[in-house]
Amino acid sequence: MKMVEEERGSVVVIRMNGKLLGGPDSEAFQKQMKDYVSQGRHNILIDLSKVSWVNSTGLGMLIAAYHTVKSAGGKFKLTGVNQRIEQIFMVTKLQTIFDTYEEEAAALASF
Protein backbone atom coordinates (compact mmCIF):
# COMPACT_ATOMS: atom_id res chain seq x y z
CA MET A 1 0.00 0.00 0.00
CA LYS A 2 1.21 3.49 -0.82
CA MET A 3 0.30 6.68 1.02
CA VAL A 4 0.63 10.27 -0.10
CA GLU A 5 0.08 13.16 2.28
CA GLU A 6 -1.40 16.47 1.26
CA GLU A 7 -2.19 19.57 3.35
CA ARG A 8 -5.58 21.16 2.64
CA GLY A 9 -5.92 24.09 5.04
CA SER A 10 -6.13 22.64 8.55
CA VAL A 11 -6.71 19.12 7.22
CA VAL A 12 -4.15 16.45 6.48
CA VAL A 13 -5.43 14.40 3.54
CA ILE A 14 -3.88 10.95 3.28
CA ARG A 15 -4.36 9.37 -0.12
CA MET A 16 -4.04 5.61 0.11
CA ASN A 17 -3.39 3.46 -2.92
CA GLY A 18 -3.61 -0.33 -3.14
CA LYS A 19 -5.10 -2.75 -0.66
CA LEU A 20 -5.44 -2.31 3.10
CA LEU A 21 -4.06 -5.62 4.34
CA GLY A 22 -2.58 -4.68 7.68
CA GLY A 23 0.69 -6.48 8.30
CA PRO A 24 3.78 -4.25 8.10
CA ASP A 25 1.67 -1.34 6.81
CA SER A 26 -0.20 -1.16 10.14
CA GLU A 27 2.82 -0.17 12.17
CA ALA A 28 3.94 2.52 9.71
CA PHE A 29 0.44 3.93 9.42
CA GLN A 30 -0.06 4.06 13.18
CA LYS A 31 3.31 5.76 13.68
CA GLN A 32 2.33 8.33 11.09
CA MET A 33 -0.94 9.02 12.92
CA LYS A 34 0.88 9.47 16.22
CA ASP A 35 3.32 11.85 14.53
CA TYR A 36 0.47 13.97 13.17
CA VAL A 37 -1.18 14.17 16.57
CA SER A 38 2.07 15.05 18.34
CA GLN A 39 2.59 17.85 15.79
CA GLY A 40 -0.87 19.21 16.57
CA ARG A 41 -2.29 18.12 13.23
CA HIS A 42 -5.57 16.72 14.48
CA ASN A 43 -7.79 16.89 11.41
CA ILE A 44 -7.32 13.78 9.30
CA LEU A 45 -9.10 12.84 6.08
CA ILE A 46 -8.37 9.42 4.61
CA ASP A 47 -8.97 9.17 0.86
CA LEU A 48 -9.80 5.56 -0.03
CA SER A 49 -10.76 6.19 -3.66
CA LYS A 50 -7.74 4.21 -4.89
CA VAL A 51 -8.13 1.41 -2.37
CA SER A 52 -9.77 -1.58 -4.02
CA TRP A 53 -10.43 -3.56 -0.87
CA VAL A 54 -9.81 -3.90 2.85
CA ASN A 55 -9.50 -7.04 4.95
CA SER A 56 -10.22 -7.27 8.69
CA THR A 57 -6.59 -6.47 9.51
CA GLY A 58 -6.84 -3.38 7.31
CA LEU A 59 -10.00 -2.42 9.17
CA GLY A 60 -7.93 -2.67 12.33
CA MET A 61 -5.50 -0.12 10.87
CA LEU A 62 -8.33 2.36 10.34
CA ILE A 63 -9.78 1.74 13.79
CA ALA A 64 -6.41 2.20 15.49
CA ALA A 65 -5.95 5.47 13.59
CA TYR A 66 -9.45 6.56 14.58
CA HIS A 67 -8.59 5.88 18.26
CA THR A 68 -5.35 7.84 18.04
CA VAL A 69 -6.89 10.91 16.44
CA LYS A 70 -10.12 10.95 18.46
CA SER A 71 -8.34 10.45 21.78
CA ALA A 72 -6.26 13.56 20.97
CA GLY A 73 -9.46 15.53 20.41
CA GLY A 74 -9.12 15.44 16.63
CA LYS A 75 -11.42 14.61 13.75
CA PHE A 76 -11.00 11.50 11.60
CA LYS A 77 -13.00 11.20 8.38
CA LEU A 78 -13.09 9.04 5.28
CA THR A 79 -13.87 9.67 1.63
CA GLY A 80 -13.81 7.62 -1.57
CA VAL A 81 -15.31 4.47 -0.02
CA ASN A 82 -16.21 2.00 -2.77
CA GLN A 83 -19.12 -0.45 -2.73
CA ARG A 84 -17.07 -3.37 -1.51
CA ILE A 85 -15.55 -1.46 1.40
CA GLU A 86 -18.95 0.00 2.24
CA GLN A 87 -20.33 -3.55 2.40
CA ILE A 88 -17.70 -4.56 4.94
CA PHE A 89 -18.38 -1.38 6.97
CA MET A 90 -22.09 -2.27 7.01
CA VAL A 91 -21.55 -5.86 8.14
CA THR A 92 -19.18 -4.80 10.93
CA LYS A 93 -21.34 -1.76 11.79
CA LEU A 94 -18.28 0.46 11.43
CA GLN A 95 -20.35 2.87 9.35
CA THR A 96 -21.82 3.95 12.71
CA ILE A 97 -18.47 5.27 13.92
CA PHE A 98 -16.68 6.25 10.70
CA ASP A 99 -17.68 9.63 9.34
CA THR A 100 -17.69 9.02 5.57
CA TYR A 101 -18.28 11.37 2.63
CA GLU A 102 -18.84 10.61 -1.03
CA GLU A 103 -17.21 13.84 -2.16
CA GLU A 104 -13.87 15.08 -0.91
CA ALA A 105 -15.02 18.70 -1.05
CA ALA A 106 -17.90 17.93 1.32
CA ALA A 107 -15.54 16.07 3.63
CA LEU A 108 -13.11 19.00 3.72
CA ALA A 109 -15.94 21.47 4.37
CA SER A 110 -17.12 19.41 7.34
CA PHE A 111 -13.98 19.93 9.45
Binding site: S56, L59, G60, I63, A64, H67, I88, T92, T96
Partner: peptide, 19 residues
Protein backbone atom coordinates in the same frame (compact mmCIF):
# COMPACT_ATOMS: atom_id res chain seq x y z
CA UNK B 1 -21.36 -12.08 17.40
CA UNK B 2 -19.57 -8.98 16.20
CA UNK B 3 -16.57 -7.91 18.25
CA UNK B 4 -16.55 -4.75 20.30
CA UNK B 5 -17.20 -2.04 17.74
CA UNK B 6 -13.88 -0.32 18.43
CA UNK B 7 -11.75 -3.45 18.80
CA UNK B 8 -8.77 -3.43 16.47
CA UNK B 9 -8.85 -7.21 15.89
CA UNK B 10 -11.24 -10.14 15.84
CA UNK B 11 -13.64 -9.50 12.97
CA UNK B 12 -12.53 -12.08 10.40
CA UNK B 13 -14.75 -15.01 11.36
CA UNK B 14 -17.72 -12.78 12.02
CA UNK B 15 -17.34 -11.24 8.55
CA UNK B 16 -17.20 -14.67 6.90
CA UNK B 17 -20.26 -15.90 8.80
CA UNK B 18 -22.17 -12.74 7.93
CA UNK B 19 -21.44 -12.92 4.21
Amino acid sequence: SPPDLLAVRGRGIFIMRSM
